[in-house]
Design a binder for these strands. Sequence first.
DNA 1: TCTAAAATTGAAAACGGTTTGGCTGTTTGT
DNA 2: ACAAACAGCCAAACCGTTTTCAATTTTAGA
Lengths: 341, 341
Amino acid sequence: MKLKEFAKQVGLSPTTVSRALSGYPEVSETTRARVAEAAVKLGYSPNVNAVRLKTGRAGAIGVVMGRAGEFHFAEFMAGMAERLVADETDILVIPMADPNHEDEMQLYRRLVESRRVDAIIVHSPKPNDERIALLHELGMPFLVHGRSAIDVPHAWLDIDNEGAIKRATSHLIDLGHRRIAMINGRPGATYALHRDSGFRKALQSHGIEPDPQLMASGNFTDELGFRFARSFLEQPNPPTAFVAGSMMTALGVYRAARSLGLQIGRDVSVIAHDDVFPYLTADNMVPSLSATRSSMRAAGSRCADLVLQLLSGRSPLEIHELWPVELILRESTGPARQSLS
Amino acid sequence: MKLKEFAKQVGLSPTTVSRALSGYPEVSETTRARVAEAAVKLGYSPNVNAVRLKTGRAGAIGVVMGRAGEFHFAEFMAGMAERLVADETDILVIPMADPNHEDEMQLYRRLVESRRVDAIIVHSPKPNDERIALLHELGMPFLVHGRSAIDVPHAWLDIDNEGAIKRATSHLIDLGHRRIAMINGRPGATYALHRDSGFRKALQSHGIEPDPQLMASGNFTDELGFRFARSFLEQPNPPTAFVAGSMMTALGVYRAARSLGLQIGRDVSVIAHDDVFPYLTADNMVPSLSATRSSMRAAGSRCADLVLQLLSGRSPLEIHELWPVELILRESTGPARQSLS
DNA sequence: TCTAAAATTGAAAACGGTTTGGCTGTTTGT
DNA sequence: ACAAACAGCCAAACCGTTTTCAATTTTAGA
């Protein structure tokens, strides 16, 4: 049913009907109520594409999905969805064809030009992220999930990765650990650098020199967790504790320790970062996993919220949120034992 | 830059330019080349919303995301994305506000009316799924990922859940297992019924009566895997083998077995269904996990493909794909031992 | 060379809404 | 009682394309 037709049924002009439904003030409450009721009864709803064309709004916010299709992604999106469901705003998932750099810039450029989205969320930014520069230059509203040091005004939300890892590491040191291994995320992203920095600071403030032999980085998979942990543990002077980048990494670390007959929480301690997944909880691991925790879903929800604020005119300069991260101690951490070798 | 302006620059009418860019045959190759080149140079690309309004196509296919934000979901979408990236088609993620039934129907109805998507993918259908009936009735193209017994013509792609579980169960029986537990997905969905049926058929064809005490169902979380497995193993007459619904469930089962001092692959066998996640692989578990395997990502990719076919006119009646499922034996399965109790 | 057919191109009418500016009555202030 | 302000409504222009229909140019056929 089209507006014209519907308006005729209600006995009003398209103008008035449109205004009534969009909540404009210059229509009487009586009329508005009548229109609203009729709309429900006759099943009229405006054609989204016509509205978008006319208003210039796309009614959607874009998220670029990397090739990996990370497990974090679904949680973040679920969070966004929770927030957006009330606002008639869609989530547009834009697949990234190639990890190729040139193409990625081109993708963002096309996305902006095509006007399919009102705003974009940028994930895992780098300290000097060209996507941010580009979006700023193109005048497309965007919010960065994570942080960038780039000298361009932009809204962002991030968790305190440095603080979290620093605290986790310090706690391990307090427990007497001196040989602490770190399994980080893919190098390049700011969050990985922040974690690295938190790790180093904690060590150094206790007079411990970070050992490059105990530091590795890569995708958050159980496999890499296992491989790295295993190779570390087989070194002549193995670590007595691990800081792991994700739940999946932690699974791998657990496995590696077990495969060498080491008991977690006694022979070797583990702290991982937990993004809070409904299907895999740190509390349920055996032994339960000490973790730095921050809900990915909550972040998604809040990011959506902030993007909406951005779109309704709030300045990006005002939108900077740094979330603290909980450290939750469970059974996987314990006092350092005597050297294992 | 708008079409009109761009056309003037090129020295042609909007009509011709539009045709040239959309690949219509009635424009000379020379002209087309000239237009294409100019478009790149001047950075012209049509306003998506105008195109959509005019053509009536939304250029997006919709996926309704349940409240859970399952980990399977991201993989499926990544697969879709892989396929769609070349086709200028977007993925629209529609959040489901409430698990409330009435609302869900309303959600689909509104989605169709709003014309935001050209087609919809329906997940985890029930045998008599009202969403299917509704979409058919509303004339919205859709593809079902999974199967439904509903008497309405529809396109679908599914994996052979029944066959997979039947084979897995039969294999356990062949290994001498008689007390086999089954941890299924949420009841209601067809896939869960199919798995249940495969399980029962395998048992019955070997003259074994399924024991309701050894059958449970629920979300695919490590926690439920643990709880169910643990409670089964603590029964007076515990199972010697498990069929688990997902990788997460399997993690829980492993944990339960370990917590009772049982060795997997020797004291108790486990087969799970593996949707193939890059971050958690059956091969890497300890002991490596025997699994029925079918790539969720491949399914997503193929579903996207089929939807595109649907949109280009292929009849839903022709689109029925049943994928076989591999059974991959690894270390988590072994001959049944004498009674454990 | 002339005409019919084919190949190109354009003008203008949609697509389905929103919004500007104007047009009626009704109140309000004095 | 009269002008001014205001509330409530409408006609028509417009958003930026695609597409129908008609006009023009080229090519082919005789």
